[in-house]
Simulated assay, not measured.
Amino acid sequence: MTRFFRHIQFRFGTERKLSAYLIYAAGEIFLLVIGILLALQINNWNSNRKDREAAIKAYQNISQQLTEDRNELISVRDFNNYYSARYERASELIAGHAAEKTDSIAILIMELSQYSDFHRSENIYETLVNSGSIKLLKNSNITSALQKLEMTYTSINKLEDIHWEIILNELYPEIRGVINYATLEIVKPDRLRSVEIQNFLVESIYLTKAKELVYNKAINEIDTLGDEIAKELNHKN
């Protein structure tokens, strides 16, 4: 009988130990899972923090580049507008048929070789794509606006290329034998009022006016972009 009770006591004791072990093991597993989840959460937090810091840096770089582009565009636009007014003055003098204005016309005709040429240090959108930073910019309005601005820049450069081509192919051949480049002496005064030069003046005025419109368009797009980036930076900070 004593052996029977000892057997029952041993069995219950073993079951209690097993239950305690299972509870302990479950607790260990629970703590391990919690630890893994916390580690993942911390890792995600660190990753998000790094992405946010990288995005802020990317937006700041874009903002700085846009500021430089805007300053360059204003300078180029002012240069363009100054000579546009000079071309209009030359056209007025030629149309007036004032013989005493020949020297003034000659100087203005020589200035037709001046043209505005916008240069930027880099292609912002292309640089973002190549560096992989584009994925950090979650604001689709900004990325779309950057693409639109690149298209506007392309339009600017195309107009400038056209302007240079007509200077090279139409102006230089026409005035080469009319004005002595070294002394600015007018060799053939009558040619200053030729149809060819008058037509070139009209083309130049048209091009400078078109360039002014596109310069202003780019400046307005930069201003809008700048506002969007400022809002994004304020939100992230």
Rank of each mutant, 00 (worst) to 15 (best):
L149D: 10
N130P: 01
K231P: 01
D69G: 01
I105H: 03
E150H: 02
Y172C: 06
N46G: 02
S47H: 05
A218M: 08
L32E: 02
E185P: 05
L201Q: 03
S63P: 06
L32S: 15
S204Y: 13
A20T: 01
R70C: 13
S63I: 04
M151S: 10
H235P: 00
I229P: 03
L128T: 04
K188T: 13
E185M: 06
E174H: 12
N169L: 13
L192F: 05
Y59D: 07
V178T: 11
L112Q: 03
E122S: 11
T102P: 06
L168E: 09
A99Q: 14
A210C: 12
S63V: 08
I219Y: 08
L213Y: 15
A210D: 15
Q65E: 14
S84W: 07
Y82G: 04
L66Y: 10
R86P: 00
I34A: 14
N157I: 04
R89N: 03
T2W: 13
G13L: 05
D117Q: 13
L201F: 04
Y181Q: 14
V214R: 11
P189N: 12
H7W: 08
G177Y: 15
N180G: 13
I94H: 00
A99N: 10
A90W: 03
A210T: 13
F5P: 05
S19D: 12
Y153E: 06
Y172G: 03
L213R: 09
E122N: 08
M1P: 11
E212G: 10
I124Q: 01
E68G: 10
A230I: 06
N139L: 05
I23A: 11
R120D: 00
A98G: 07
M151C: 00
H7E: 14
F12Y: 10
K231D: 10
L233E: 11
Y172W: 13
S121W: 00
Y87S: 04
E160I: 04
K148C: 01
D223E: 14
E92M: 03
R89E: 01
R193L: 11
